[in-house]
């Protein structure tokens, strides 16, 4: 387990009232927004279990939307986010659901626009979060690392080529998660990094054969 630091204990500075239901919601929104990486026309938020049940009283719905709009966890506009000019520029709706196979604080973001994408995650306590699914692929993003998400055609050697390119940047890989829909079909890689990869590395990755989505997701500041 990662040892906590004093700075974790005396922070975050946040809009109340709950680290898991408010600050965690904002962070989930921010990270999901980074994953989508475009201006959505519409976002459908699906809140599950405790998030659905007590979410309104904790401003979870406001936090999720504020995060997608790029507000920081301590932004006092979160309270009135529905009235902000930023919120008025997009369409959104909230669904409150029960599914006990999901985490108590689970959420799905359905982004609609030039590209449609579903991002799922959980608020796991004390403001910590995990994004565990993008479309149908399992990932493991906690917002603490710069990360690469790659979707590619399942072929021998792709992983080795990708890690080789990262190595050229002298960046250490902190963790790596691979998944695929079936042998020789669509596959995904989620790579958490200790440093930052260069633009040229991203360009090289983009030009690799068999890779069709390359996304670089910066870690969250708070």
């Amino acid at each position: 387990m990662r040892q906590s630091s004093i700075t974790d204990i005396i922070s975050p500075i946040m809009a109340g009232p709950s680290s898991s239901h408010t600050a965690g919601a904002v962070r989930l929104g921010l990270l999901a927004g980074n994953v989508y990486n475009a201006k959505p026309e519409k976002v459908i938020f699906k809140l599950y279990n405790s998030y659905a049940l007590t979410g309104k009283g904790h401003g979870t719905d406001k936090g999720l939307l504020a995060g997608v709009l790029g507000f920081a966890v301590d932004d006092e506009r979160i309270k009135n986010v529905f009235d902000t000019p930023e919120a008025k520029k997009i369409k959104y709706e909230f669904n409150f659901l029960e599914d006990f196979n999901r985490h108590p604080n689970a959420v799905d973001f359905h982004f609609e626009g030039d590209l449609n994408m579903t991002v799922s995650g959980n608020s796991i306590g004390a403001g910590e979060i995990i994004i565990d699914k993008i479309n149908n692929f399992s990932v493991n993003l906690d917002g603490k690392y710069n990360s690469l998400i790659l979707v590619y055609h399942d072929e021998p050697g792709v992983i080795s080529k990708v890690t080789g390119m990262i190595q050229l940047d002298k960046v250490n890989i902190a963790s790596m998660n691979c998944d695929r829909s079936g042998k020789g079909k669509e596959a995904s890689m989620c790579i958490c990094l200790d440093g930052e990869v260069s633009k040229s590395c991203l360009e090289a990755l983009n030009s690799l054969e068999h890779l069709y989505i390359v996304r670089y997701i910066k870690k969250l500041e708070i």
């Binding site: 204990i9 005396i10 922070s11 975050p12 500075i13 946040m14 809009a15 109340g16 009232p17 709950s18 680290s19 408010t22 600050a23 401003g59 406001k62 301590d74 006092e76 979160i78 309270k79 004390a126 403001g127």
Partner: peptide
């Protein structure tokens, strides 16, 4: 009470105990 108004507080260690 600031916390309950969605005001800006410091979770120390948590928001409920701020």
């Amino acid at each position: 009470e600031q916390n309950l108004r969605m005001g800006r507080i410091v979770a120390c260690p948590t928001a409920g105990s701020c």
